[in-house]
Amino acid sequence: MKAPRFAYEKPQSLDAAIRLLADGGDGAKLIAGGQSLGPILNFRLAQPELLIDIRTLPELRTVRDEGDAVFLGAGTTHAAIEDGRVCDPTRGLLSAVARTIAYRAVRNRGTLGGSLAHADPAADWVNLMALLDAEIVARGPSGERRLHAAAFVRGPLTTDLAADEIITGVSVRKLSGRARWGQYKFNRKPGEFAEAIGGFVHDPELGMARALVGAIGDAPYVVADAMRLDEPAMHDAVSRAGFADGTYEHQIHFAALKRATAQARGA
């Protein structure tokens, strides 16, 4: 289980990284914390010709207040979010979710941007950012784009990102003091990938009521108007997410959604 041969570059600026990525074509791949890519390389499931290490780029480490949102640099580690070392605009939801990602040793190196770019359908940020209607900020040779997180993932390990674009960060709306949220991850063991993720966030001041059926093997399924989400509506959402009533998958996703909603509603 040793990685295949590849070349390695550690550019000193974001622009240099974008140039390397554009020049490298299909054979070039970005690496940040490497916590998703590392295992894939060791299994030889990815065989890049060139790895471009962007972990320490200062442009990806910035966190800034954007007024009604907070921009979290793509290089922010899960552990930094868990520890509250960066601002959490969701009043604790980001940090609570961060704590459940893999294990501490992985969270110390794994990054927000890396996890989103890898786009595992069961990954926490992929699902949570869709729930929060966050914007993913990407830069390429022709400039910067903002992508809706809910539409960012196209399918398993596939995103809307162009081959020469780099995620620079995520813009997450600030939830108000009246916001309520709930999140339930169903996995067999702490740290393992989710079999189901349910999410619910309601912020009357933002006029936001969204629900999530996540970890569905595909892009997350979001109910954008979830104000009156009762049990029949939850069943309906899970069915629309692709799991027919009566199946095991339907049952666990329904239970996860129900528990997330109950948590948000303080039940």
């Binding site: 289980m1 390695y8 040793a105």
Partner: peptide, 29 residues
Amino acid sequence: CEHGVCGACTVLIDGAPARSCITLAVACD
């Protein structure tokens, strides 16, 4: 395990625990 699950290879990098099996040595320059 060489895929980051078992934890046997955990070391400290800049003071924080990390998986040495899925961390490239060159990234630790």
